[in-house]
Amino acid sequence: MIEVNVDGASAGNPGPSGAGIMIKNNGLVEKHSIPLGMMDNHEAEFTACRMALEFCLEKQADIVWLRSDSQAVVHAIEKEFVRNSQYKPLLEEILGLTKQMNLFFVKWVPSKENKAADELARKAIHLN
């Protein structure tokens, strides 16, 4: 099982944005800070999630446990629905990626439990 913590951050709404992704796989930890350009915060959160799942599939992961402090992303994945049409294409991509896995779990975690991913996302903002 691969454990993933993700976070998206934006300096402004919209503003320069970044994705923070931390992947734990067989005792190894990968950290990614990815600049995303100009986005709003929710778009950065959804994009970070999508990118994390793409990394997992590159590793041929069949069981993934994803944690995020974004209630909007977690609820959208759980309900397979997002009200704002701007995020629907991203949600559809995310759901398509999860369907390629044997098991996929998503959990909302408080920000204090997602600090590493948050730091990576904030670092990525400055890489824009």
Results as ranks from 00 to 15, higher is better:
residue 128 N to M: 09
residue 34 I to H: 00
residue 112 K to Y: 03
residue 46 F to K: 12
residue 4 V to F: 01
residue 123 K to I: 07
residue 119 E to V: 15
residue 82 V to Q: 14
residue 120 L to F: 06
residue 113 E to K: 10
residue 18 G to K: 00
residue 8 G to V: 09
residue 36 L to I: 04
residue 17 S to E: 02
residue 1 M to R: 10
residue 59 K to Q: 06
residue 110 P to D: 12
residue 9 A to R: 04
residue 41 N to Y: 06
residue 90 L to V: 09
residue 99 K to T: 01
residue 94 I to M: 06
residue 21 I to T: 07
residue 26 N to T: 04
residue 36 L to G: 02
residue 25 N to K: 10
residue 11 A to V: 01
residue 31 K to S: 02
residue 45 E to R: 03
residue 57 L to A: 15
residue 18 G to R: 00
residue 112 K to S: 13
residue 106 V to T: 04
residue 82 V to M: 09
residue 99 K to F: 14
residue 24 K to E: 12
residue 67 R to D: 02
residue 28 L to F: 04
residue 126 H to F: 03
residue 8 G to L: 12
residue 88 K to P: 03
residue 22 M to R: 13
residue 7 D to G: 14
residue 97 L to S: 13
residue 52 A to V: 04
residue 123 K to S: 07
residue 56 C to H: 03
residue 64 V to Q: 02
residue 52 A to S: 05
residue 7 D to R: 12
residue 57 L to W: 05
residue 5 N to E: 08
residue 62 D to V: 15
residue 76 A to S: 14
residue 28 L to H: 03
residue 32 H to K: 09
residue 119 E to S: 11
residue 26 N to Y: 11
residue 14 P to C: 09
residue 50 R to A: 15
residue 38 M to I: 08
residue 80 E to I: 14
residue 96 G to L: 06
residue 127 L to D: 03
residue 20 G to E: 07
residue 12 G to Q: 15
residue 106 V to F: 01
residue 66 L to R: 05
residue 66 L to M: 15
residue 16 P to W: 09
residue 32 H to D: 13
residue 34 I to G: 06
residue 80 E to L: 15
residue 47 T to Y: 08
residue 108 W to K: 11
residue 66 L to S: 13
residue 66 L to H: 08
residue 8 G to Q: 04
residue 120 L to G: 01
residue 107 K to G: 11
residue 49 C to F: 07
residue 42 H to N: 10
residue 93 E to P: 05
residue 97 L to F: 14
residue 107 K to C: 10
residue 108 W to I: 12
residue 115 K to C: 06
residue 11 A to T: 01
residue 74 V to R: 00
residue 50 R to D: 03
residue 33 S to Y: 07
residue 13 N to L: 11
residue 54 E to W: 10
residue 122 R to T: 00
residue 10 S to K: 01
residue 18 G to N: 02
residue 106 V to L: 06
residue 13 N to F: 13
residue 64 V to F: 08
residue 95 L to V: 12
residue 113 E to L: 08
residue 59 K to M: 09
residue 75 H to N: 13
residue 96 G to Y: 04
residue 124 A to D: 04
residue 103 L to T: 05
residue 11 A to M: 09
residue 80 E to Y: 07
residue 38 M to A: 04
residue 118 D to H: 10
residue 123 K to Q: 15
residue 64 V to Y: 05
residue 13 N to Y: 13
residue 122 R to S: 01
residue 122 R to L: 03
residue 94 I to L: 09
residue 53 L to F: 10
residue 83 R to S: 10
residue 12 G to M: 07
residue 95 L to Q: 06
residue 86 Q to P: 01
residue 113 E to M: 15
residue 98 T to R: 11
residue 38 M to L: 11
residue 99 K to W: 08
residue 96 G to M: 02
residue 29 V to H: 02
residue 24 K to S: 03
residue 58 E to N: 10
residue 124 A to P: 00
residue 4 V to D: 00
residue 128 N to E: 11
residue 114 N to F: 03
residue 13 N to I: 04
residue 21 I to F: 12
residue 104 F to R: 09
residue 94 I to R: 04
residue 110 P to N: 08
residue 57 L to H: 13
residue 71 Q to L: 15
residue 107 K to R: 15
residue 73 V to H: 03
residue 80 E to H: 13
residue 21 I to V: 07
residue 37 G to F: 08
residue 126 H to D: 10
residue 123 K to Y: 01
residue 43 E to T: 14
residue 104 F to G: 10
residue 60 Q to T: 02
residue 110 P to M: 05
residue 96 G to C: 06
residue 42 H to D: 08
residue 26 N to M: 09
residue 30 E to A: 06
residue 26 N to H: 14
residue 113 E to A: 02
residue 126 H to L: 07
residue 42 H to Y: 10
